[in-house]
Amino acid sequence: MKRKEKSLRADRRNKIKENSLLDRIYDIVNYIILFLYAFICIYPFYYIFINTISNNKISESGGVIFYPKGIHLQNYIDAFRIPGLGQATLVSLSRTVLGTALTVVTAAFLGYMFTRESMFKRKLWYRIVVITMYFNAGIIPWYLTMMNLGLTNNFLGYILPTIISPFYIILTKTYIESTPKEIQEAAECDGAKVLTIFFRIMLPICKPILATVAIFAAVGHWNSFQDTLLLMTQEKYYTLQFLLYRYLQSSQSLSSIVNATAGSSEAMLANAQTQTSIRMTVTIIVALPIILVYPFFQRFFSKGIMLGAVKG
C-alpha cells in the first residue's frame, strides 16, 4: 500500500518535472518568436532614421545597419529646399487639425442627439446615417459629385466629406448610453436646454471616448492619400503623403535640385543628397508625427472601447 503511494508520488513528480521542462522550452521559443516579430515591426523605422543622420556616403554604400555613423543633420536642413515640401506640410497639418476638430465635435453632438428619445423619428435618422458604412457609390460617381459641388482642387474637399463618420457616432452613442441618465435628467429639471446640456455636461463626460475618436480621426487625416489622388491636380493642395508617393516614383531630379541650391563646402559635399537619402529623409518627416504621438495614445485602446468597436 505504502509502496504504491510512493511510486504514485514519484510518478507525479516526474510528470511535473517533465511539464516544467516543456514549459521552459515553450517559453523560450515563444519569447524568441515574439521578439523577432516586434523587431521586424520597428527595425525598418530605426534603420531609416539612423541612415538619415549618418554620413550620406557611408549610408549610400550600405554601411549603416545598427548604429549611425558620422552623425549630421544636413539631410533635414536640405529637406527645406525640396520644392513643395513646406506647402504640403502646411496642407497636411491644417487638414488634420481642422478635420479632426470637426469630426470629433460632430461625432459627440450626433452621438448625444441620437440618445435623446424625444427626437422626432430618431431611429430612422440614426439608421440613415449608420447604413452609409456599408455601401459606396464607387470612384466615378463620387468624383463627379465632388466636381459638381466644386470640391475638386479645393481645400474643403478634404474636410467636408469626412465630417460625418458613422463609426465614431456609434462609438460615442454607445458610450453615452453607458453613462448614468440621471445627470442629464437632473440638468433638464433645472431647466437646461439641449445645447447647454451638450456643451456643459456631455462634452466633459465623453472626454475619454472623444480622445479615442480624435486619435483615430487625426491618424486617418494625416495618412489619407486617396482623396488627393482623386480630387487634387494643383500642387498647392498636395499633402505630404501624396508628395512622398511622387518622390518615390521619381526622385532622380530631386537630388540634383537640392544639391544645386546647396553650398559647396567640404562638409556639404560629403553629405550631398542622393536619391536614397532624400527618400529616407522625407519618409521620416512623414512618419515622425505618428511615431512621436504613438506611445501617448497607446493607453486609449482600452478594452471597453475595443469591444464596442467589434460590433460596430
Partner: peptide, 20 residues
C-alpha cells in the same frame, strides 16, 4: 506597442519602407 505601430502608418509609408 511595437507590433501595433505599423497599423498607424499609411500605405504610402509602408511602400516607402518596402522600397528602402
Amino acid at each position: 506597442t511595437a507590433t501595433t505601430l505599423p497599423n498607424f502608418i499609411s500605405w504610402v509609408l509602408v511602400y516607402s519602407v518596402a522600397f528602402l
